[in-house]
Design a protein around this nucleic acid. Sequence first.
DNA 1: TGTCAACTTTACACAGTGTCAAGTTGATTC
DNA 2: GAATCAACTTGACACTGTGTAAAGTTGACA
Lengths: 199, 199
Amino acid sequence: MSTENLSTRTRILNAAWKLLEDSASKARMSDIAKAAGVSRQALYLHFPNRADLLIATTRHIDEAKQIEVRLAPSRAATSGVERLARFIEAWGNYIPEIYGVARALMAMQDSDAEARQAWSDRMLAVREGCKAAVAAIEADGLLAESLDSGTATDLLWAMLSVRNWELLTVQCGWTQDTYISEIKALAGRSLVSEFTPDH
Amino acid sequence: MSTENLSTRTRILNAAWKLLEDSASKARMSDIAKAAGVSRQALYLHFPNRADLLIATTRHIDEAKQIEVRLAPSRAATSGVERLARFIEAWGNYIPEIYGVARALMAMQDSDAEARQAWSDRMLAVREGCKAAVAAIEADGLLAESLDSGTATDLLWAMLSVRNWELLTVQCGWTQDTYISEIKALAGRSLVSEFTPDH
DNA sequence: TGTCAACTTTACACAGTGTCAAGTTGATTC
DNA sequence: GAATCAACTTGACACTGTGTAAAGTTGACA
């Protein structure tokens, strides 16, 4: 796709996305500007600061990657266990897509309150997905006896955190496929009573 | 304990420790210097840079908090399940002690290769503990059927990561006691076959 | 021809790390 | 009691990256 006719704003977002995608490259404001073919100051004409630019980049990716569409199978599931599996697939496979931006945003959390808030909001949305899956399992009467739904939601949320994905894939060297299947199995064993993996 | 007779180096380490402990306070080099009652430059006489100072601080804490002693019950355990439980208690209760420094060190990972290495080394030590616990369970013939020991080690390591502790306690608001008991239960359900919580 | 928005160019303020060089000070040694 | 030395202080400065400010350019549109 030609980059010519796109608005400056879009070119900036695409540049930020691309730079953040490969972990090797730095993504300072000047780097992003250079990659977008605009001056560094042009960035500040469109985004008040780096945090806002990164946040806008995540929304931009969400649109391009259609996160909502990906979540549809989970919402359409007819059983709790299936809903859990489809949700893990949707979100778990989405993590690598946003990992670059996520990393940059997480790195800013200590210094930037706005970045913290933005990331927190996104993660709370994920938590809602976890909550819905847990509720569906509970409705089937299959939530592990020792768990209440709040605790189960928190645990699932933790299992599906970007940091966990990072640890298991980047650090431990798991493939994405291994990650998905092992996390599904883990969530099943630990949240669902009488769980048997539907292979 | 009087701070008078301690060496400058020790006073610096104590100051860094104290500042990093309460999450409210900043811990810039100048802050640490002020807290230690020395000039900022004195810090550079003892530590080449901030990363080294933080790393030295973790070792300082390890000594003061006797991490090795805490790990003894796990090593002395007579069954795999017990070893797992004692290890989770030892490490899980140690996390809040080092969390301040850990946070600072983790925040430096993206920019500082040395900090990354130092943190990685420490976490690999934790992984060894996980590995030993998994090996003990396996030796009892109680490792969950669907798991090989490598995967089980990785999963336990992820469950016991500082990031997970942070998510569950700081973000979800779990108490430390809840964290320990829920993680024990989670590790049991997900790693051990025929697991029954010993009350 | 004039106006306006979008963008560029140049310059600067600021925070925080790390470096450098020239003091001071107090203990040790001859 | 003078010289020496290590440990520390003081003040200045380089560097990086973010964000701000102000003046100049350019092309479209009226």
